[in-house]
Design a protein around this nucleic acid. Structure first.
Lengths: 343, 343
DNA sequence: GGGAACTGTTGACGCGCGTCAACGAGGCTT
DNA sequence: AAGCCTCGTTGACGCGCGTCAACAGTTCCC
């Protein structure tokens, strides 16, 4: 049986291998080098006619260049590793999805890496392995990278974005927003509620520190940190512990809306009046916090605006000339206190 | 200035290119072919001494094989694309994280792909592009793939897991659990609450259908579907609409815990007694549903047990001989009604 | 008219790896 | 001694691509 005639169809019939740049070159009647150049945007150096032929041929064959071949030739791949820290908020999915879309828009492919996946196998080892096999075009650090990991990546010739230390003081700002709101509502004492039982969370640390700094700067009593589990009895115990340090009324700035809700309902079960005895402000503006009664006071975040530093860093590093519209800092409009009924 | 002597250190000094199999071969005093064979597990064919030398050399150099080179030679990469459907539940992060870890354990790298990223650019195009550039070892479908996409992947020589249609009747089972619980609590009429304003969600459809089938089989009045937005006024309106179709008391099976909470508090604002007038059962056992008062009745899920079909499919397709302990169906223990105060 | 400068195009190499066919050495049989 | 098999090892090729140096063709200037 004679071998099937060279199958080249956009849809790729079963058995027909995918088109390569050789196929495109043949069909366009040019050399493979020309195809490569044209398809990589070296357009001015060629006849418009040639360019057109190549493009048409590529389209006709449904040509998609092989990531592997390109990576091998270039010495680096078109992947960008997104490092997601051990951080817990409901809208994390939005964040990842938004960033993935931005990355794809730049012609790269996002590979998300969770800083700490489980008990066994440190995230560091897994990350380093990833960097070495993948040789990605970059690492987008949402805050999960240790200094050592950053250096490792840099040494491996893999730029880490954003170039400054990742939190961008965003956590400082968030802590300030919460503390400032609480004080403006008349609370003279402030506490910060972290999530209990979580592995070290750099965001939480930074925000608690920011709240503490606010209190110090404003001459208020030092803020008290408390770890709150998302579970009724534990939350109640945490709140009781807090009551021993701070006499009501006081305000609690919470790591996220889940923590806030846990404290809110714990307070009611303990017979404390909200917001008179205890004020609670959450963080992130999760929809679930707005459907309960009383409606949670929180800090609403606009994911796209909050991601601006990351988009900026990506555009700066990989973007075309037209993608410089963003600024390197998150928009102040990214975060705003959403007044509710709990402060 | 003389070029630096061949830098080969595990940590990779700046400027020293990463070790390749050539380096390993040289250091071990064997050919590159041998290195490749040994490192791919062709152990019996070689002297134990040779094997040992190769392994030691690789370890000494911190050798990590290049994904690009391997992919190019093999004609397919070591990626597994995880297709995440347009589905909304709080613990989705857990699911993705768990699967990623399982995939890495098998020596592959997970690339998550969101079925629908945004308004512009259909997910299908992006997926197909991904399959063509990446030539992944497989696609793990959480339920977001259309039949056409599945066929496309198969034709491209890229196996789709799990082989059966993805939902594995898991949604049928979940709908049953909810409906059965409601009936056992004495509700003679049942409604199903989907998430409003979401693009088509196959999970939601399947579960609503399952609840409807339950009602029909049990001779109950047909279930009513209602779309609930996660926002107080909208939820209230949805509940009011429901009241026109069903006279209390009735039970509502909810798509997820957020929907359940929205309805729960909407009911209270409307002066309806929960659970006497309206029973509410959520889905997923999110911690946030357990800290509010009244505590939400819901279906608790054990992510690992629920992921079993996917782990099984992965092991079956790519796993070593020792990884067959799992069964192809999710464990019934994966999902259990968690009684609360709302039914 | 001969070289220089420029434009448009291409041949050829190498990236790192998997693998097939082939090889030498040693032991065995005929 | 010649042939055959097995065992352990390797040379060489190709995967698809980017890119450099070199090429033919044209225009220009002295």
């Amino acid at each position: 049986m004679p071998r099937q005639a060279e199958g080249r169809s956009p849809v790729g019939r079963p058995g027909s291998r995918p088109a390569t740049s050789v196929d495109v070159a043949k069909l366009a009647g040019v050399s493979r080098a020309t195809v490569s150049h044209v398809l990589n945007g070296q357009v001015e150096r060629f006849n418009t006619d040639t360019v057109e032929r190549v493009r048409r041929a590529a389209a006709a064959l449904g040509y998609v260049r092989s990531a592997a071949g390109r990576a091998l030739a270039l010495g680096r791949s078109d992947f960008i590793v997104v490092v997601v820290p051990n951080v817990t908020f409901i809208r994390l999915q939005d964040v990842v999805q938004t960033l993935s879309a931005d990355i794809e828009k730049l012609g790269f492919t996002a590979v998300v890496h969770f800083s700490v996946a489980g008990p066994e196998g440190t995230g560091t080892d897994r990350l380093r392995h990833l960097l070495e096999t993948l040789r990605p075009a970059g690492v987008l650090d949402l805050g999960g990278l240790t200094r050592a990991d950053r250096e490792f990546a840099a040494q491996a010739g893999c730029p880490v974005l954003p170039p400054d230390k990742p939190p961008f003081n965003v956590n400082e700002w968030l802590g300030f927003l919460q503390a400032d709101h609480l004080r403006s509502r008349g609370y003279a004492r402030i506490a910060y509620a972290l999530l209990a039982d979580e592995r070290d969370d750099s965001y939480a640390r930074a925000r608690a520190a920011s709240v503490a700094a606010f209190c110090a700067a404003e001459g208020m009593p030092p803020s008290v940190d408390v770890h709150v589990p998302i579970e009724p009895e534990g939350a109640q115990r945490a709140l009781e512990a807090l009551l021993e340090a701070h006499r009501p009324p006081f305000g609690v700035a919470c790591y996220n809306d889940k923590v806030a809700l846990a404290l809110l309902f714990a307070a009611r079960r303990l017979g404390l009046a909200v917001p008179d005895d205890v004020g609670v402000i959450g963080m992130e503006g999760a929809d679930v916090g707005q459907v309960v009664s009383p409606r949670l006071t929180t800090v609403r975040s606009d994911v796209r605006a909050a991601m601006r530093p990351f988009r900026y860093a990506l555009a700066q590093a990989y973007g075309g000339p037209a993608s410089r519209e963003d600024e390197p800092v998150f928009g102040k409009e990214a975060f705003a206190v959403l007044p509710g009924e709990t402060t």
